[in-house]
Design a protein around this nucleic acid. Structure first.
Lengths: 233, 233
DNA sequence: TGTGACTCAAACGTCATACTTAATTTGCCG
DNA sequence: CGGCAAATTAAGTATGACGTTTGAGTCACA
């Protein structure tokens, strides 16, 4: 992740954002700028800029005479990568991982189907390389190296789909995969069946078999959901 | 849409945002704050707050000694509702409508399947009501009324899925549906087959038949893609 | 001629303060 | 009791001063 921008306003954000998304300030809570000013020991300017950003994420609204109010959860911009990161780092990480995994299960199969139609030869090669990398690192507690290939594989699929909306979910998928490895502290090696599926998806894309690429990816995401005890849709 | 926030910074945003997303300032362009200050005849405070928001959308980066630089398209937060709205209002609206429709085709069927499992009786009732509303307004140039029911129907599906990520796509779908009606200036009444499909989806959800709800919704989104000449995945 | 360190200035970043605007509360008066 | 007006409060805006980073140009030296 490239985050952690410079500047005081970023520092304030990195404190307020998680505090809001984790429920430290539940919806309806009111913050006052001069209070924050004092708490962070920064000028009004800085606080206001941070507030503006939170406002653009629909985490808060700012109204005269009343203060900065935390908005209800349903209104948050849950697709904002920053918000996703904050929530994954917070208390409802499990819930967050589940909803993101369901999203994956909807998007990735379709993306794989499109990738089979649109992937460039270079992308096919990348795909194969990462799938083989997964095979090579799937045994012997090389979870770190495995994760790198896994993330790269899914990123290529999403990018190769040719749809920019899908492509931008690469970061989200990366977070989910990383989170899964770190969270459940995968002591065991990855499921061999899943590894094989990735290899076969790479094959299907290379052979321009959209149907098969989609179906195989559906199996992968179904596995991911099963891991989190989400009943298959 | 509830937008068009108050305040000067919002006014600046509503001018800069579309200008950037439409390519008036292509990636790599550099803006200087004092130049903007003069152009909009507002204070630095206001400009800086607008810049912070654009920065949080990954539309620009602000660097010392160099100015505010427009970032490459691939890095934009294309899921930000504001950005979506700006792009839909701009020059590459057709391209935008296509990628959003592809996203719909991935998400909505899965959402419908989940809705069949999780929808409350109230939601089932809403669904039926809007489906019947679509039937009632599907003939005789009542496109406005039809659109209202159509949007509401899809919103309920997404919300009833129980997945917050899906639920938040309600606005996006609304934009797409509205855009379709307005853009292609639908003079003709809606396709009767599509109307029927909505009724059947409502039925399937009511009867808790996830498989059927998903399959029927897939037909709906396939139709939407066909309208835009997107080859079926 | 090429390279490296040094200086300078441009542009953003931060602060302090004064003033403006709008919404809520209070309280007066009918 | 009800409605309207004034006071109050907290955010919004403007402005001048100063700090910080960093790109670019310069100059000396090998």
């Amino acid at each position: 992740m490239e985050n952690q921008g410079q500047g005081l306003h970023a520092r304030v954000l990195e404190s307020l954002g998680p505090a809001i998304t984790s429920g430290t300030y539940p919806p309806g809570s009111v913050l006052r700028t001069d209070e924050l000013e004092e708490r962070f020991d920064v000028s009004r300017t800085v606080i206001r800029e941070a507030i503006r950003v939170l406002e653009s994420m629909h985490l808060v609204t700012s109204r005269r005479r009343v203060g900065v109010t935390v908005r209800p959860t349903e209104e948050w911009n849950v697709y904002d990568p920053q918000v996703i990161r904050w929530r994954l780092a917070g208390t409802d990480r499990p819930r967050q991982l589940r909803s993101l995994t369901v999203l994956r299960s909807a998007v990735e199969p379709v993306a794989a189907g499109l990738a089979a139609r649109h992937a460039t030869p270079e992308q096919c090669e990348e795909l194969t390389r990462h799938a083989l990398g997964m095979v090579a690192t799937s045994r012997g507690q090389q979870l770190g190296a495995y994760l790198v290939h896994d993330v790269a594989f899914h990123r290529v699929i999403l990018r190769a789909s040719g749809n920019e909306m899908f492509a931008r979910l690469g970061d989200v998928v990366a977070e989910v995969l990383t989170g899964r490895t770190e969270h459940q502290v995968m002591f065991t090696d990855p499921d061999p069946a899943a590894v094989t599926l990735h290899v076969r998806v790479a094959e299907a894309v290379r052979e321009r078999d959209a149907e098969r690429a989609e179906a195989l990816t559906r199996e992968i995401t179904a596995g991911a959901m099963a891991e989190l005890d989400i009943l298959a849709p």
